[in-house]
Amino acid sequence: MKTKDHKKPSKIQELTYELKVEQVMCKNVTTLKPDNTMNDVRRILRNKKISGIPVIDDDRLVGIVSIEDFLICLLEGGGINEKVENKMTKNVVTVYSDDHIVQLVGKFDRDGYGRFPVVDRDTKKLVGIITKGDIIEGLLKKLEIDYHEEEIHTYRASHIFEDVISDNSILIFKYRIKGGDFKTAGEQTSKLRKNLLRLGFLPETIRRVAIAAFEAEMNIVIYTPEGELVAKIHPEKVTINAIDSGPGIPDVKKAMRQGYSTAPDWVRELGFGAGMGLPNIKNYSDEMTLESKVNEGTNLNFVIYTKKNED
C-alpha cells in the first residue's frame, strides 16, 4: 500500500526552493570583448577548462561564445582569426542572481544550454555564470552544512543532567556584555537561548528566560559601561545574575514602577527605555531581587522554575 509520504518533497527538492543562484554561481567570470578573435576563445577554453565565455561590450552582456560555437566556426570554414561578435550566440538567455535554483532546473532541460550568465535584476550587469556542476556542488555543500547542524541539534545535550553523576549538577554560562554596543545587543541572550533549546527545556520556559534575559542585557547595554549575564542551569530552575559596573540605580523602588524611566530620547528611539524593562523581568520570572549602589553597580537576580521536556 502506498503511504502519503510519496508526495513529500525530498530534502534536495526543498533546497532548490531555498537556495538562490547567487549562492552557488561562479562569481569570478572570464569575459571577452566582441572584437576578440576565435583564437582567444580557443586559448581561454583550453587554459581555463571552461565550456563557455560571456561577451561584454560597455559593461553590457551582448553574447556568449561556447565550444559549440567554436566548432561550428571551424566546420563552416571560418578561421581562428574570425571576430567573436560574428560567431557568438547573440540571444543570450540569462538568469537573475536572486532567482531560486528551482527556476533553473527546468530551464537547463528545456533550453538545452550548458550554462547561463547571471545578471543583477536591477542593474542588468553580469555578476556571474552558473552551470549544472555549480548547482550540484552548491546543493552538496548546503546538504553538508544542514547535516552538520542537525547532528549538533540532535546531540543529546538534553540528557546531560542524567549522564553526569553527582548529588546536584549545575551548568554555568557566562556572557560578557559591552555597554553602548547596539549592533550586537541581544546576541548574548540569543546564545543562552540556543543552549537552553539544546538542553531540552520546554519552549514556554525558554521564552520566559529569553525575554527576561534580553531585557537585562538591554539594560546593561543602555545604561552601563559593561556587565555580564551569568546563567546557572539546574534541572529544575534557571537563575540569572545580571551584574554591571555602574552607574547604579538611585531609587530602586521607582525604577521598578511600570513606565518610570530615566532613559534618554535616543534609547527610546531604539524601542527601549520606556520603563517596561524591569517590570517585564519581574513578570516573566518567579523570583526577582535587585540590589544597586550608586557609582558601584547593579546586581539583578531572577529565577525561573522549569519543567523539563519528558522525551
Binding site: G186, T189, R193, P203, R207, G271
Partner: peptide, 21 residues
Amino acid sequence: SEALLLTGLTTPQVVYTAENS
C-alpha cells in the same frame, strides 16, 4: 508566540525581540 509583529522600528533588536518572544 507565533504572532505577526508590525513595527516601524528597523534595528537588529527587532529581530532579537522576535526570536526571544
